[in-house]
C-alpha cells in the first residue's frame, strides 16, 4: 500500500481514573498513513508510547465498522470527528492535512463520567433502556407476516429510528448534555410499530423519568445532536417523544414513576 503519509500533533486528554484530575498531554503522531482510520492512528501512537515505556491512551472501540456504537470521542470539538454520519472508527486520516493539530477529548457530560483517558461510562443509556426500552412479549414461533399489518412508511420510520447505535454522540454534542435524541429514537422505533403500542404510554413516561434522574440536561432544540449523530437520527423523533410523553401523562392511566423509571 502506498498512499500519503502525514505528521500530526495530538493534544489528548489524559485522566488516570474517574476521580483523578486529568490534564492535557501533547505528542507528535509521525508518519501516519492517510489510509489509516482514526482509531488505527491511535493504535500506531499507542505502540510508540508502549515502546517508549509510557502508558498508552485508553479509548473505546469494538466493531470498527460503524455498527456497534462503542467508539467515540470529541475531535477538535466534534463528536466522532468532522465527517457527517460517520463514526470515529470509520473516519479516515485522509480527512486531515499534514501539520494539523488535533484536540482529542472524552465526551463531556455529568451522565457520562470519564473512566480513563478517552473512555467514558455510558451505562446511563443502559439504565434508560432498562426503564422501558423493550417489549414484554413471550417470543415463540415467528408469526405469519400478514398477521400484523405495518404500513411501509411506518416500517421505514421505525427502521430509521432503530438505526441508533447508542454511541452517545448526541449527548456529547448537545450544549445541554441532553439525552433526548437517544431516548426519542428508542421510544420511536417501538411506538411506531404495533408490537410496541400496548406499552407505549408506560414506556415513554418511565424512560423520560429515568433520563431525568440520571442527570442529563434539558433539550433546548439546538439541533446539534442531529448534525453530529453518526446514524442521521432526526429530531423529528424528539418531537414524537414529546407527543408520546404528554399524551401518556395526560390521557393514559399510567403514572410517571416518582424518581427514575428503573429499579
Amino acid at each position: 500500500m502506498s498512499g500519503k503519509h502525514i505528521n500530526l500533533t495530538l493534544k489528548i486528554w489524559r485522566q488516570n481514573g474517574p476521580q483523578a484530575p486529568g490534564s492535557w498531554e501533547i505528542f507528535p503522531a509521525k508518519d501516519i498513513s492517510t489510509e489509516a482510520s482514526f482509531l488505527e492512528m491511535l493504535d500506531i501512537v499507542n505502540e510508540q508510547l508502549a515502546l517508549a515505556g509510557k502508558e498508552p491512551v485508553a479509548f473505546d472501540h469494538d466493531c470498527r465498522e460503524g455498527i456497534c456504537g462503542t467508539c467515540g470521542c470529541a475531535v477538535n470539538g466534534r463528536p466522532h470527528g468532522p465527517d457527517r454520519e460517520t463514526t470515529l472508527c470509520q473516519l479516515h486520516m485522509r480527512r486531515f492535512r499534514d501539520g494539523d493539530t488535533l484536540v482529542i477529548e472524552p465526551y463531556r457530560a455529568r451522565a457520562f463520567p470519564v473512566i480513563k483517558d478517552l473512555v467514558v461510562d455510558r451505562s446511563a443509556f443502559d439504565q434508560v433502556i432498562q426503564a422501558g426500552g423493550f417489549v414484554s412479549v413471550n417470543t415463540g414461533q415467528a408469526q405469519d407476516a400478514n398477521s400484523l399489518p405495518v404500513p411501509r412508511n411506518k416500517a421505514e420510520e421505525a427502521m430509521d429510528a432503530a438505526a441508533c447505535i447508542g454511541c452517545g454522540a448526541c449527548v456529547a454534542a448537545c450544549p445541554n448534555a441532553a439525552g433526548m435524541l437517544f431516548v426519542s429514537a428508542k421510544v420511536s422505533h417501538l411506538a411506531l410499530l404495533p408490537q410496541g403500542r400496548p406499552e407505549a404510554a408506560k414506556r415513554a413516561l418511565s424512560m423520560v423519568a429515568q433520563m431525568d434522574a440520571l442527570g442529563f440536561g434539558n433539550c433546548t432544540n439546538h439541533k446539534e445532536c442531529e448534525v453530529e449523530c453518526p446514524k442521521g437520527i432526526s429530531i423529528r423523533n424528539i418531537a414524537r417523544l414529546n407527543r408520546e410523553f404528554i399524551r401518556a401523562a395526560v390521557a393514559s392511566t399510567e403514572k410517571i414513576p416518582a424518581s427514575g423509571g428503573g429499579q
Binding site: 466534534r78 448534555a177 442531529e226 453530529e228
Partner: peptide, 21 residues
C-alpha cells in the same frame, strides 16, 4: 441551571461544525 449542571467540565474546543445551533 440544570443544563449547566449537566456538563460540569466544558470542552476545550467547542465547535458547531455541523451547524446545528
Amino acid at each position: 441551571f440544570e443544563n449547566r449542571k449537566a456538563r460540569p467540565i466544558q470542552y476545550a474546543v467547542d465547535k458547531s461544525g455541523g451547524g446545528g445551533r
